[in-house]
Structures are given as C-alpha cells and as structure tokens.
C-alpha cells in the first residue's frame, strides 16, 4: 500500500488514488496531422522502465485533482511529486508536496 503525498491534501493511502499511467503523454495538438503509426504510438504505446518513471495519479477519493509522481518501479520509492511539466518546474505559489514541520 503506497503512501502518496497529494500536493493539496498531504500523505494518503494508495487506495484513495486512481492511477493514470505514464505522465507527459499529451493529447496530440493536431491528431489529424499524424500518420497512423504516430497516432497508434499515442494510443497504445507507453514506456515500461525498471527504475524512475513519471506517472499520473488522481486523488479520486479526496480532492479529485490530478498530479504527477516520479516513482521507482523496482523499489516503489516515490522520488518526486509535482504538478507542473517536470519536478523542477513547480510553479511558485502552487502546492508543494509534504507537510510543513517534518515527518509527523
């Protein structure tokens, strides 16, 4: 049972969340401009690395917001939680993971 930290609500059990697959796979800007193969790549193909993996989660039984997680698929360690385009792109003023005041 993973312990995931919702950027808005804090740490919550995995069962409160819904998994959304690989992150940063945007809906193509102009699907009509894609070849069948490119469209099939978008529809059906996702990475499956052993190690750090950026993936989407939704706090579906909580605040219902989507966010991104970098999780190691071998150790299940959560390496980053973020809402922007990358872990480093956290916009100032937006929620940041974790509770203030330490690990309690």
């Amino acid at each position: 049972m993973l312990l995931l930290t919702c950027p808005w609500c804090g740490p919550r059990d995995e069962t409160e969340y819904h998994y959304g697959g690989q992150a940063h796979v945007p809906y193509p800007e102009d699907p009509a401009a894609l070849s069948d193969e490119e469209w099939a790549q978008y529809l059906f193909y996702r990475d499956n690395p052993e190690g750090p993996y950026a993936e989407r989660w939704s706090h579906s039984l909580g605040c219902r917001r989507w966010f991104n997680v970098v999780r190691d698929t071998a150790t299940y360690e959560v390496l980053a939680v973020y809402t922007g385009a990358s872990p480093d792109s956290q916009v100032p003023g937006t929620p940041t993971p974790g509770h203030p005041g330490g690990p309690r």
């Binding site: 809906y27 193509p28 699907p31 009509a32 069948d36 469209w39 099939a40």
Partner: peptide, 12 residues
C-alpha cells in the same frame, strides 16, 4: 469538428 477519438476512425 474534432473530438476525442475522431482520429481513430481513419485507422485501418
């Protein structure tokens, strides 16, 4: 108009 899934109707 475009909508989610439209592109798929021209897949073989």
């Amino acid at each position: 108009k475009d909508f989610v899934g439209k592109r798929s109707y021209s897949r073989a």
